[in-house]
Simulated scan of single mutants.
Amino acid sequence: MEIGNHSWGTDFILVGLFQYGQMDTLLFTIISILFAVALIGSITLVQLIRLDHRLHTPMYFLLSQLSIIDMMYISTTVPKMAANFLSDTKTISFLGCEIQAFVFLSLGGSEALLLGFMSYDRYIAICQPLHYPVLMSRKICCSMVTCAWSSSSINALVHTLYAFQLPFCGSWVVNHFFCEVPALLPLVCEDTSQYEHTILMSGLVILLLPFLAILASYARVLVVAFQMRSGKGQSRAMSTCSSHLTVASLFYTTGLSTYTYPYSLHSPARDKVVAVLYSIVTPVLNPFIYSLCNKDVMGALRRQMR
Rank of each mutant, 00 (worst) to 15 (best):
M1S: 11
E2F: 08
I3V: 15
W8G: 09
D11N: 11
F12N: 03
F12W: 05
Q19L: 06
G21N: 09
D24N: 15
S42K: 04
I43A: 14
L48D: 06
I49K: 04
I49A: 10
D52L: 07
L55V: 11
L55M: 11
L66D: 05
S67R: 04
S75K: 02
T76Y: 10
N84S: 07
N84E: 04
F85L: 07
S87P: 08
T89E: 05
F94L: 08
I99C: 03
F102H: 04
L105K: 08
G108F: 05
S110M: 13
I124G: 11
P129Y: 06
L130K: 14
M144P: 09
V145Q: 03
T146W: 07
W149P: 00
S151M: 10
S151L: 13
S152C: 08
V158R: 06
T160Q: 06
L161P: 06
A163M: 13
Q165F: 10
L166H: 04
L166P: 03
V173D: 00
V173A: 00
V173W: 00
V173T: 00
F177A: 00
P182Q: 04
L184P: 02
L185D: 11
P186G: 01
E190I: 13
D191A: 14
E196K: 02
V205M: 09
L207N: 12
L215T: 10
A216Y: 12
S217V: 05
A219M: 07
R220H: 08
A225K: 06
F226I: 08
G231V: 10
S239G: 08
S249A: 13
L256D: 02
S257K: 09
Y259R: 01
P262V: 07
H266S: 07
P268D: 05
A269P: 00
D271H: 01
V273A: 04
V276A: 07
T282I: 15
L285I: 15
F288T: 04
I289F: 15
I289R: 01
N294L: 10
D296E: 12
G299S: 13
G299A: 03
R302W: 13
